[in-house]
Amino acid sequence: MELTTLLQQLINGLSIGSVYAIFALGYTLIFSILGIINFAHGAVFTLGAYFTYALTGARFGFNGIFAEAQLPFGLPFLLALFVGAGLAGLVGVLVERALFRPLRARGADPLLTLVSSLGIAVALVNTIQYFVGAEVYSFPSSVLQGLPPSVNFGTPEAPLVVRTVQLVIGVISLVILVVLTWFINRTKTGRALRAVAEDSTTSSLLGINTDRLILLTFFISGFVGGIAGTLVGLSVTITGPYFGIAFGLKGLAVIVLGGLGNIPGAVLGGIVIGIAENLLPSSAVAYKDAIAFAILFVVLLIRPQGLLGRTQVQKV
């Protein structure tokens, strides 16, 4: 591979890897607090993409209840992205209130909660299909209005061309990563979140309202999931109601690779998988989705706790 091509693919890998990272953080935050993988996360990712799509004022397709419907207004893309993510966050909150909290209050087995979250995922996917059909949606090219389709970081003789979309999604995800890391490590609420993740009973003895923080965690998780959904939808297309399910599996690979419940691990796992996928020779691109799991398999053979995971994963 030529150097410029290599650099190009590294940038692309870093960009999509950051999206994987923020998506995986949504899983990891909930896992670190409840010890449960929330399978509804992939569906929330899909919803985020559809919310943003609708908010930009774009028209839906021929199928579903909302056939050919469109909002009477269209928000600028960046605003639609955040409002859409906020709505996805509210769906996350709804999932916690309707499903996780009642099960927790009954002291349900974590396996039951996990299966129920799969059930919610299926229900959400079908709801999406019911309303907007199963078509592929692309964000109108006008969302990146005024920006050139690609940027050349090299010289005219040795071009290093990166699609603007890749840069946009990379920059947005990196900003989200930085803000989230700052929030968790440097704010009072973030400190309380870490405390609840470590020991929720002790946290409540310190005056922390643990249920409220769990609710906040679901909001943040849904929010970053929604951002990731929109960004992937922008980068490729929204491939239909099942959009987030395959992506969700990759997100699982990312968090297991990084170490379950480990925040820096989720970021590292996302970036490793993003870059590895993009370094594939073009003849092997068809196997792109298998790459994540191949890496996962090899890493787990050597480090069963994941790249940055603690040896002891069991919650006491």
Binding site: A192, A195, E198, D199, G207, I208
Partner: peptide
């Protein structure tokens, strides 16, 4: 809270 610093533990006391 074993995975947090002494200072973080104390500040959480003042939550």
């Amino acid at each position: 809270l074993a995975r947090m610093t002494v200072e973080d533990n104390l500040l959480l006391g003042a939550y």
